[in-house]
Structure formats: structure tokens, C-alpha cells
Design a protein around this nucleic acid. Structure first.
Lengths: 108, 108
DNA sequence: TTCCTTGCTACAATTACTGTAGCATAAAGC
DNA sequence: GCTTTATGCTACAGTAATTGTAGCAAGGAA
């Protein structure tokens, strides 16, 4: 697969174009990414509570996703402990919140 | 991990609740799902063209995702060949189309 | 027939994820 | 002090998902 990008391009997993939308689709397309954002939509959760909310998903992936989401600026670790959405993360979350309604309509 | 659901629940990968939103988040959270929908947003593409659009992703996964997306009712194979979005698929696509604008804003 | 193109599959190698256990740290409770 | 409990986080072997390459059968068109 594509291992390099043309000079000047910002290299991003899942895309050789460096277009932000591709980077975003790739990040959100990893397991538990969307789910984590979804579970944090209302209030911050401790790592343990988040794990419970995510059907006891493996802490290994959860930790990996949280790190990625933090680097992306969507999630932050509060000083009192507990993961929460940043302002940007809340924006993102609201962007795909209509999915909820769609899902209800889709369930056939 | 959870291998069974309580009686009466619709079992769905990535969730033991059977809530449609979870099923949707899980489906969209598999690799290339979002990307495929994105690439089909404007016009149908042949399997080959779709592969090219998706950075030469492996045909194995693409085929698997296309099958899942077809079973979900988001994508269909036209009789003249070529994959396109269904009406439902277009709805879904529009649901997360604001992501594009978000991504541009996010690129830091 | 030959040459393309379509949708699709096989299969080994690689990577991602799971499940379980556990660590270091810190804040109580005794 | 010591024990308990909870935090964020990591190790690691087993398993599942994905990749990369090759190729198939069917359908045109030349």
C-alpha cells in the first residue's frame, strides 16, 4: 500500500492526500473511536467508567484511542481525573449527533 | 468479552444492548466504512474505481465492507454495475457531511 | 478468438484488538 | 503507621481483522 507521500504533503494514515477529512475519517474509523466520543457526550468519565460504558472493551485499545483522541484535541484528561471532551470535541460530537435519530429510523 | 445477550435482545456486534446507535457506530467504526460512504457521496463508482479512490485499499476488506453496507441498506450494486448509495445511504451520508467543514477547521 | 473490464475470492503475512492480569500512584478509612 | 480502594496505565499471549498480491469467472467489444 501507499508508503510515502509526495514531498510537501502532510502524511496521514489512511490517506496519501493529507486532506484533513481523510485523516478524520480514518481516526473516527478505528474501533471504539466513535463510541468513546459518544459515551463522553454528556459528562466526563473516569477511565474505568468509560470502560464499563464501552461494554468492557479492552483497556489496551481504549488507552490507545484515548491517546489518539487527545492528540487530535478532542478529548482531555481533567486534573481531577476523568476523561472529558474539549470544546473541539464537543463540536465534533454535535456534528454526528444526528446519527442518533438516523439510527432509530434505520433500525428496520 | 460479552458473548451473549439477555433473552429478547437483538444481538449486535460492539454492543450488548442492541441499541441501533451502537450497531451503527460499530458498523461505521470498521475500517473503510466511512471512507466508502464518503467516496460514493457524489456518484456511483465501480469496484475498481472505488478501490482507486480508497488509496488502493485491499479488495478483501472493501468487498467485506461493501457487503455489510449493502446488508445495512446504505449501498447497492446497480444493474449496470457500479456501487452507489441508496436513498437511505444518501441520508446517512448527509448526516455526517458537516464533518467536512469540521475537518477543515480542525486541521490546526 | 483475443483483449479488456467487471465483481469477487484465496491465502499467507502482517497488524490490530481482546482478555486477563497487574503495576505505580494517590486518596481516603481505620 | 497500615490497609483498602480507586485512579490512569501497561504487559503479554491469544485471537480476529486487515493487508498485499495474485487470480478467477462472466460479460462485452474488437
Amino acid at each position: 500500500m501507499a508508503k510515502q507521500a509526495a514531498s510537501g504533503e502532510r502524511r496521514v494514515r489512511g490517506s496519501r492526500t493529507g486532506r484533513p477529512i481523510m485523516a478524520l475519517l480514518d481516526l473516527l474509523g478505528r474501533r471504539w473511536s466513535l463510541r468513546i466520543l459518544w459515551e463522553l457526550r454528556e459528562a466526563p468519565l473516569t477511565s474505568r467508567a468509560l470502560r464499563t460504558a464501552c461494554d468492557e472493551a479492552s483497556p489496551t485499545v481504549l488507552q490507545a484511542r484515548l491517546t489518539e483522541l487527545r492528540e487530535a484535541g478532542f478529548v482531555e484528561l481533567g486534573d481531577g481525573g476523568g476523561y472529558g471532551l474539549t470544546a473541539l470535541g464537543r463540536d465534533l460530537c454535535e456534528t454526528f449527533m444526528p446519527l442518533h435519530r438516523f439510527a432509530e429510523r434505520w433500525k428496520r
